[in-house]
C-alpha cells in the first residue's frame, strides 16, 4: 500500500519536473525561465524524493534531509543567477533580449549613478 502511494507521489513529482522543462523551453527570456525552472523543479523534486522515502521508509530521514537541502539551495542559486544576469544585462541583451514592462532595479541604479540625468516620470524606462 505504502509503495503504491509513494510511487504515485513520485509520478506527480516527475510531471512537475517535465512542466519545468517545458516552461524553460517555452518562456521568452531567462528571467521567466528561472521562474518556471526554480519553482517547478523544487516541488517536483520534493514530491519525487518524498515518494521514494514513502516507498522505502528506512530512507525517509535521508530523503527529508535532501528535500530540506533542495528547498534551501534552489532559490539561493536562482537569486545568484538572477542578480548576475541583471548586472551583466548590457552584454546579455546583445545575444537574447529580455521582456520587461518595468525595471525598478535599473531605475534605482540609474538614479544612484547619474541623479541629474534621471528622466522625469516614475520609471517607464525599458532597457532594450
Amino acid at each position: 500500500m505504502n509503495e503504491t502511494i509513494g510511487a504515485f507521489l513520485a509520478l506527480g513529482g516527475s510531471i512537475f519536473l517535465l512542466l519545468a522543462s517545458v516552461g524553460m523551453l517555452r518562456m521568452p527570456d531567462y528571467y521567466n525561465r528561472m521562474q518556471t525552472g526554480t519553482k517547478a523543479t523544487t516541488l517536483g523534486s520534493i514530491l519525487f524524493l518524498v515518494g521514494l522515502g514513502v516507498m522505502r521508509p528506512e530512507w525517509l530521514g535521508k530523503m527529508l534531509l535532501l528535500v530540506g537541502f533542495v528547498v534551501l539551495t534552489n532559490p539561493v542559486s536562482s537569486h545568484a543567477l538572477a542578480r548576475a544576469a541583471h548586472n551583466a544585462r548590457a552584454k546579455l541583451d546583445k545575444v537574447g533580449k529580455t521582456v520587461l514592462a518595468v525595471d525598478a532595479l535599473a531605475d534605482a541604479e540609474d538614479a544612484a549613478t547619474d541623479a541629474p540625468a534621471r528622466a522625469a516620470g516614475n520609471g517607464e524606462a525599458e532597457h532594450a
Partner: peptide, 23 residues
C-alpha cells in the same frame, strides 16, 4: 504495480532532463 509506476515516473523525469538539455 508500484515499481511500474515509479518506472514511468523515472521515464518522465528523464524526458524532462532531455528537454532541459535542449534548452
Amino acid at each position: 504495480m508500484a515499481d511500474t509506476v515509479l518506472l514511468v515516473a523515472s521515464g518522465i523525469a528523464l524526458a524532462a532532463l532531455v528537454l532541459a538539455g535542449l534548452r
